[in-house]
């Protein structure tokens, strides 16, 4: 009994370490990547290639004073950043990085990740509401309506995949795609000819769910100053930041598991954790790349995209695939 608890604690510690490390160095990667795209070097002073920048930033954030604005709802204000980070870490627990590297394998892993992911909207709402800032409230309302409307096409797409594979276990989902690129869910097959479209929908929804540009309406720097975290300084802000990047890692992992064959090699050779990491970092690079290329959408443009384009198409995909599954 105590061994299982110890196991669980170790798993959580590793998950936290992985999430925190990733969050810190993804900020560095984002800034370097943005710099290269904009033809400037990015952070390059602290340490070789600026690799000491994230610890320096973290130190700075931790030593700053946490200011709670007058009239703010203290409890909500304090709990919101924690709520941003905690579900992200919890989701890591169930993600299989390779056949053996998984903290806790569950047969309803997909459900669990989505359950935790929907908590992210909660933290934004609480942060915006609790900080008693008009910009914050507006951003919170935006972010919640955005998250709700993008969860629908995302879940419909997941249902399509679950229907095809017949499992909700992330490990089995990957196992079903092993053997090479032709087995991946991304590649259209007879019974699922619309899978690339589903991938695109899922990809867009991941961008929107993680509040990344061009869907970063919750932050919307040029409109709402900094959106829901306008009033946050010090480590409160740091937690939001880390939560955002941890969510990105989870989003990329989910795409990898659902569509890109998890830890499998495109050619079926040497499957392992390295393939998984390569895939998620490539996806994260594309997130960064997209963020620094496009302008922001509007809130109605965003909702139109979801309700008028993504949901009908994903619903059609669901029905179509269901029909084909019945036929074949």
């Amino acid at each position: 009994m105590s061994l299982t608890i110890l196991n669980a604690v170790i798993a959580v510690v590793i998950a936290i370490a992985f999430a925190a490390l990733n969050a810190a160095y993804l900020v560095w990667a984002e800034r370097r990547g943005a710099g290269r795209i904009q033809r400037r070097p990015g952070p390059n002073v602290n340490g070789p290639l600026g690799l000491l920048q994230p610890p320096a930033d973290g130190l700075k954030l931790m030593t700053k004073q946490l200011i709670i604005p007058g009239g703010a709802d203290k409890a909500l204000f304090m709990v919101a950043p924690v709520l941003a980070m905690a579900p992200a870490i919890m989701s890591f627990v169930t993600i299989p990085f390779s056949e053996n590297i998984v903290a806790r394998s569950m047969n309803i892993g997909v459900l669990m990740i989505f359950a935790f992911a929907s908590l992210g909207a909660m933290s934004i709402l609480l942060a915006g509401w609790g900080s008693r800032n008009k910009y914050g409230v507006m951003a919170a309302v935006r972010a919640v309506s955005q998250n709700i409307s993008y969860e629908i096409p995302m879940l419909i797409t997941v249902i399509t995949i679950v229907m095809m594979t017949g499992t909700m276990d992330l490990k089995e989902l990957v196992a079903g795609q092993s053997g090479g690129i032709w087995n991946w869910n991304l590649v259209p097959s007879l019974s699922s000819p619309l899978m690339p479209v589903a991938f695109l929908i899922f990809f867009i929804c991941t961008l929107a769910e993680t509040n990344r540009a061009p869907f970063d309406l919750g932050e919307a720097e040029s409109e709402l100053v900094a959106g829901f975290h306008t009033e946050y300084g010090s480590m409160g802000f740091g937690l939001f930041f880390m939560g955002e990047y941890a969510n990105i890692v989870i989003g990329a992992s989910l795409i990898t598991i659902l569509f890109l064959g998890g830890w499998g090699c495109p050619l079926g050779l040497f499957p392992g954790v390295w393939w998984f990491l390569l895939k998620i970092y490539l996806l994260i690079f594309s997130f960064i790349w997209i963020r620094w290329t496009f302008p922001r959408t509007t809130i109605y443009g965003l909702l139109n995209l979801s309700w008028k384009i993504l949901i009908p198409i994903s619903l059609f995909n669901l029905l179509f695939t269901a029909g084909l599954l019945k036929v074949f």
Binding site: G33, G35, R36, Q38, R39, R40, P41, W289, W292, T293
Partner: peptide, 12 residues
């Protein structure tokens, strides 16, 4: 376009 710019030398 941004991908191409990514590989160009920095100008700063």
């Amino acid at each position: 376009i941004t991908f191409k710019e990514f590989f160009k030398p920095v100008v700063t």
